[in-house]
Design a protein around this nucleic acid. Structure first.
Lengths: 153, 153
DNA sequence: GCAAATTATATGTATATACATACAATTTGC
DNA sequence: GCAAATTGTATGTATATACATATAATTTGC
């Protein structure tokens, strides 16, 4: 389905505007899809992203600030996401002994287990994407170019 | 800046995955940028989108359901967005006489005035986009293709 | 014409973002 | 070595989404 059909809009002022809106729209479709994928596992999309970051550290504890840096969403509120994960026993927070301002976050065995289950679901889902490698590369380049000269990192 | 630099991630499993994440990331950058653009005018991004839809009707009242259909964000909660616009005297809600379930929403003079101010800001902002027409078309096509076979409209 | 189904909107709850602010721990400048 | 600045995290508030549910008005089936 084209963007015009979807938005029931006849036309856009410029091709750039159409592409711009298409990025925003496509992302919302992808986000919704992922959110629904994670729901049966009791995880939100962002909670999943935090767990992924924690697993990526292979046991090395991670600070809240580092999680914040790595999150896809700019200025995401890692502190409250960790709250939720702790409630579910998927992550643990400890005060860092060297710097008592910092927190040391680690993923639990339980957290690793949930991620493992999700890995399969994700792979299955990503196989739905119809782009060739060349197309994916081109899309990637165009998005990088679109972001150029946009002021907010 | 490339996605890898931004996310401080060495590599992605597949080119498709990189493109997928880039769409989500780019959209969040664009959304944040627009949100900041509208903030000085006391409008959120979604409130602005609703006002645009109302203006597009040239005075013909619009139902909540129609606004919902036209919103970029899937399943956006138009009812509460109209609440906010009514509070600010930018839109008016009336019960439709023919079908008392429906609401007839119209934009006020005040609302039109705010939109007019914003039009200039938007045009200025969109001129920052560095894509040629050809690139914008290609980006548009690739995004449409990416959405193909994704189950959620 | 009336009960059942549908439709249009509203609302409650959980989650998340953006921003401002708070506060304690640490570092820096002198 | 101490005051000032910075850093790391937490929290309060406004906004928004997703989903479930509620409720009133309308349409449909018989």
């Amino acid at each position: 389905m084209t963007l015009e059909e979807q938005l029931k809009q006849k036309e856009f002022k410029t091709k750039r505007q159409r592409a711009y809106l298409n990025v925003v729209y496509t992302a919302s479709v992808l986000n919704l899809e992922q959110t629904r994928l994670f729901k049966p596992f009791g995880l939100s999309l962002q909670q999943y992203n935090v767990l992924r970051i924690l697993r990526g550290q292979n046991g090395t504890p991670v600070s809240i600030g580092l999680i914040q840096e790595r999150m896809l969403d700019i200025q995401s509120n890692a502190s409250r996401l960790i709250d939720k994960l702790e409630d579910k026993k998927l992550a643990i927070r400890k005060v860092c002994p060297n710097d008592k301002r910092q927190m040391e976050i680690t993923i639990t065995q339980e957290g690793l287990k949930v991620l493992l289950e999700l890995d399969e679901v994700i792979v299955l889902n990503e196989s739905n994407i119809q782009l060739t490698d060349g197309e994916a590369d081109m899309l990637n380049d165009l998005l990088n170019k679109l972001r150029t000269n946009q002021k907010n990192k």
